[in-house]
């Protein structure tokens, strides 16, 4: 399979690989995917008191496109607000990385990971909307 230059770049030089303290109140962690599907993503954000994402880290088990999708997500998350982060769509990732149809699920997973991390942070900080808290 031919990978786009951007996928190759993120695969070879992944941004923001690592972990944040998952027990810290200002850190939100999202783990999505399953080993049986061939991809698991862990995405973490550190949020300031003002609701700005001041750091983002990831670890991914998966194909090159999955690694690139999560690496790109951390780049986009850093420096943005929680509310803006919640608006990131998988289609933006597909476009930026030129993912082929068979790899679209990698971008979906990255979007899910962002949402899961945000929800985790909101849950810890009592900022989860009622309907989401129940879901």
């Amino acid at each position: 399979m031919a990978y786009s230059d951007k996928v190759l770049d993120h695969y070879q030089n992944p941004r923001n690989v690592g972990s944040l303290d998952k027990d810290a109140d200002n850190v939100g962690t999202g783990v999505v995917g399953a080993p049986e599907c061939g991809d698991v993503m862990k995405l973490q954000i550190k949020v300031s008191d003002e609701g700005q994402i001041i750091d983002a880290k990831f670890k991914t088990y998966g194909c090159g496109s999955a690694i690139a999708s999560s690496s790109l997500a951390t780049e986009w998350l850093k420096g943005t607000s929680i509310d803006a982060a919640a608006e990131i769509k998988n289609t933006q990732i597909v476009k930026e990385l030129s993912l082929p149809p068979v790899k679209i699920h990698c971008s979906v997973l990255a979007e899910d990971a962002i949402k899961a991390a945000i929800n985790d942070w909101r849950r810890k900080n009592g900022k989860l909307a009622k309907e989401e808290a129940n879901s």
Partner: peptide, 11 residues
Amino acid sequence: PYVEGESLLMG
């Protein structure tokens, strides 16, 4: 274990 085959081949 713990690394995925396709990404390994890519590397």
